[in-house]
Design a protein around this nucleic acid. Structure first.
Lengths: 101, 101
DNA sequence: CAAACGTATCGATATTTTCAGAAATCCAGA
DNA sequence: TCTGGATTTCTGAAAATATCGATACGTTTG
């Protein structure tokens, strides 16, 4: 886990929010707004894009940044890409900060 | 505590290192390298500058960034400025990450 | 197969960050 | 008070980041 990369990823309000939204998808993405959702796979890019109010390209970038540093995971299913939190990594991060910072 | 500001501050290797060095000053700044040290006040800028291998201006900038987001505190004594960790703030941060992230 | 759709990537530009050197400030000592 | 050392602030160039629109790619569907 590249601590610097993680901190850079978290240095942006929207990216932090994405992480928080994905913690409780049903809570942050009302059912009528959820174009597509799978409790196991996560939330698809277009729903996150709508919620974030950014362009699809920016949102996709952000998701990829969060994914590259391990905080979220992706599953492609047909034309959809679902993103979900990587709880294990987030926990590791939390412990790492607590221990070595 | 502005989480974004804190993450920005921590998005830099040297700044993270400064925080770690200040955790155990005696360990990271060998006595013969410590130009000036006070266990209560912390380590002075010139010692941190030497250790970081950066210019005094950059080091001063970095310290001020860490200070503005509350991670370290400063005490001016004569011509020296001593910096030390703000353990309370660091602990708050750690808990905040654990809880809300 | 062609059009439509979800997503990713690319290219461009505006903004921010990095880091140094110069200049300014502040304090101590001759 | 003059000189020098410690630190900060200012200025600026280079690098990195933010963010968009256009484009490309794979998938679904008519």
């Amino acid at each position: 886990m590249e601590l610097i990369m993680v901190f850079k990823a978290l240095s942006n309000e929207t990216r932090i929010n994405i992480l928080i939204w994905l913690k409780e998808p049903r809570q942050h993405f009302p059912a009528e707004e959820l174009e597509d959702y799978d409790a196991n796979l996560g939330v698809c890019v277009s729903d996150i894009t709508k919620k974030a109010g950014l362009s699809p390209s920016t949102t996709s970038d952000y998701l990829s940044i969060l994914q590259k540093c391990g905080l979220i995971e992706a599953t492609r299913s047909g034309q959809w890409t679902y993103y979900r939190r990587n709880e294990r990594a987030i926990d590791t991060l939390s412990k790492l900060i607590q221990k070595s910072l």
